Amino acid sequence: MENTMATILPEIDIDRVTMKYRTDASEVLALQEVTMNIRQGEFVSLLGPSGCGKTTLLRIIADLIQPTSGSVQVAGGTAREARLAQKYGIVFQNPVLYDWRKVRENVTLPLEMMGVKKSERRHRAMELLSLVGLEHAASRYPWQLSGGMQQRVAIARALAMEPEILLMDEPFSALDEFSRERLNEELLAIWSQVKNTVVFVTHSIPEAIFLSDRVFVLSPHPGRLSAVVDISMPRPRTKEMRQSETFFRLIAQIRGSFEGV
C-alpha cells in the first residue's frame, strides 16, 4: 500500500506561493514561500490563527485571486484550467444564497446550469438536504433560516455537482458545537462515498484532526508552512475517537508546532 501511495501524483501542487497586498501606507506580506502537495482523494486541513493567510491560500487554489509569485498546479494543469473545467466546489465562510429562491432551488442551481433534468435535480437536492438535516426546510426561503442553517444549504449546494475538489473556508464556524460536530461526521460520510479531494480551512485544532488525513499548520504574519501533521487515526472516524489518547496527543503535537513558530 505504501508503494502504491508513493506513485500517486499530487492533485494540487503548490510551489513557493507568496502573496503581498499593497495598501496606501505599506505592503502587507500575507503568505511567504508556501509549498505543499495534496494527493488525489485526500482530506487536508489548512490550520492556523486568524490572519495567517489560510483563506488567501484557499482563494489562490480556487483561482479567485492570483499570487504575487509562485504557482499552483491542479491535476497537471493550471488552477484557472481547473476552475473553467468546474473541478471545484466552494463553500465560503458566509453563505451566498439567493433570497428569492427557495432552499431546494438554491441547492439545485448548479445542476440547472449543467442542464440536469428537473426530476433528477429535485431528487438530488432532497437527498443532500436530508444529509445536512434540512429536508424539512426545502420550501422555505433563506431569509427564513438561521445563519447556521443557511450555511448548511450552501454546503449542500456545493456538493450537488459532486466536484473533484471541494474547497471549504471555515464552513461550520457559525454553528454551535453540537451541530458542528454532527456536520463533521456527515461531511466525512459524504466524502467516504465520493472520495473527492477536500481542502478545509479551520482555526479549530480538534476539527482539523477529526476530519483530516493531514493537517498543514500555517504560522501568522506572514503565513508560512510551519508543520505538516499526519493524522494517525483509522477511518471511519467516530465520535468516540474525540476522547481517545491519540486524539489528545495530536492536539498537543499541533499546539506545540504553534509554540515553536
Rank of each mutant, 00 (worst) to 15 (best):
131 L>H: 13
177 E>M: 13
73 Q>A: 13
44 V>R: 02
38 I>K: 04
47 L>R: 06
136 H>T: 10
55 T>S: 15
117 K>E: 15
18 T>N: 07
164 E>A: 09
150 Q>D: 01
253 Q>E: 15
81 E>R: 11
37 N>W: 00
159 L>N: 03
107 V>N: 02
206 P>L: 10
45 S>E: 09
232 S>P: 12
83 R>L: 13
135 E>D: 15
178 F>Q: 15
34 V>E: 03
242 R>I: 08
173 S>K: 04
161 M>H: 02
126 M>R: 10
86 Q>M: 12
72 V>W: 00
156 A>D: 06
248 F>Y: 14
246 T>D: 14
97 L>I: 07
112 E>Q: 13
64 L>W: 01
212 S>I: 08
191 W>V: 03
81 E>T: 10
109 L>C: 06
233 M>I: 14
1 M>Q: 13
100 W>E: 05
161 M>V: 14
96 V>Q: 13
28 V>I: 15
33 E>S: 14
95 P>R: 00
164 E>D: 13
14 I>A: 08
131 L>D: 02
227 A>E: 15
190 I>P: 00
237 R>W: 11
121 R>A: 08
182 R>A: 12
214 R>V: 11
18 T>P: 06
127 E>C: 09
67 P>K: 05
106 N>E: 01
249 R>Q: 14
119 S>C: 09
37 N>H: 14
60 I>T: 09
30 A>K: 07
90 I>D: 02
166 L>S: 05
46 L>M: 11
193 Q>L: 06
261 V>S: 13
204 S>P: 10
10 P>K: 03
72 V>Y: 00
86 Q>G: 11
46 L>H: 05
40 Q>V: 00
240 E>D: 14
61 I>K: 01
124 R>V: 07
61 I>P: 01
145 L>Y: 07
146 S>H: 00
77 G>S: 12
217 V>L: 10
155 I>W: 00
23 T>N: 11
205 I>G: 07
167 L>S: 01
135 E>F: 01
148 G>N: 02
103 V>K: 05
103 V>D: 01
166 L>F: 05
201 V>K: 05
21 Y>G: 01
174 A>D: 04
61 I>Q: 05
217 V>K: 09
76 G>F: 04
154 A>F: 02
229 V>I: 15
185 E>H: 12
181 E>V: 14
246 T>F: 02
106 N>S: 05
219 S>L: 06
213 D>M: 08
140 R>D: 06
191 W>I: 04
